[in-house]
């Protein structure tokens, strides 16, 4: 498997879009930290990058890459390789490349300007989100045969996680304003890796605000070691579940 991963990574890292993405992240992060006089505001800008741009690029790029590699995948399938190996290699190749781009683009500025627990948390979450959205993209790509449709599905998925899901949560919160829904909200947030990621970062960042009112309920859960551990496990599930399903699909897929 390692052999294939190596070449996939080499291929992706030379990709121009990938280079542009790395450069874009870097310019953005440096300008955010450089222009803002206080680094907390810089972190806020970085939070938006991690929660919006990283998933978008990760999911769209991965989907397109999988479609563009259709013939290459065929070639690999005709070789003495297990299908699972091929799919995993593709996943690891994409993940390693996305993570590398993120670490270089956003990691370095954070290490320079904000090398504390909040910064580290952001990097960790950014890495996890990159990988999660590679897994989700591969699921979208394996499920739809048509490339245009597949990319559409990928963008819709991103929109869903970044915006629509929260809209839905907002709706629920207003419908059930008279009920104690805080605990249920914790459960619901598990269904969106972006929400989970955001809350985990915020607990490191905006401690004062989240401590107030219901914030305390969230803090009591996510702030504890158990809650933190559980959140990480859920994020990992968000990697392995789509990956597992897509591998299963790929094994029996006609190319």
């Amino acid at each position: 498997m390692k052999k294939v991963i190596k070449y996939v990574v080499i291929d992706i890292l030379r990709n121009r879009i990938m280079m542009a993405y790395t450069l874009f992240l870097m310019v953005l992060s440096f300008s955010i930290f450089g222009l803002e006089d206080n680094s907390a505001k810089g972190l806020l800008g970085l939070l938006n990058i991690i929660l919006i741009i990283v998933p978008l690029v990760s999911i769209v790029f991965s989907t397109i890459y999988v479609y563009n590699s259709a013939e290459f995948i065929e070639l690999l399938v005709s070789q003495p390789l297990k299908r699972k190996t091929i799919w995993m290699s593709l996943f690891f190749g994409l993940s390693i490349s996305m993570v590398l781009a993120f670490l270089i683009g956003a990691g370095i500025p954070v290490f320079i300007y904000q090398a504390d627990i909040t910064g580290m948390m952001m990097i960790l979450i950014g890495v996890l989100l990159s990988v999660i959205f590679v897994a989700v993209a591969m699921l979208a790509a394996v499920k739809t045969r048509d490339k245009a449709k597949g990319i559409g599905v990928a963008i819709l998925l991103w929109l869903y996680f970044a915006l629509l899901f929260d809209g839905f949560v907002l709706f629920i919160l207003f419908q059930f304003a008279d009920y104690p829904v805080e605990k249920a909200m914790i459960a619901i947030s598990m269904f969106n890796p972006l929400d989970l990621a955001r809350i985990m970062i915020l607990l490191k960042m905006d401690v004062s605000a989240l401590m107030g009112y219901t914030g305390a309920v969230f803090k009591d859960f996510f702030g504890t070691e158990l809650g933190m551990g559980l959140s990480f496990v859920v994020l990992l599930i968000w990697i392995f579940l789509p990956l597992g399903i897509s591998t299963k699909r790929f094994k029996s897929k006609d190319l």
Binding site: L44, L47, N48, L51, I52, A162, L163, D166, G167, V169, L170, L173, V181, E182, M185, I186, S189, L194, D195, R198, I199, L202, D206, A209, L210, Y213, T214, G215, F218
Partner: peptide, 10 residues
Amino acid sequence: PVMILFRSFI
């Protein structure tokens, strides 16, 4: 409880 959506895109 809307606090849970704090700093979200929406």
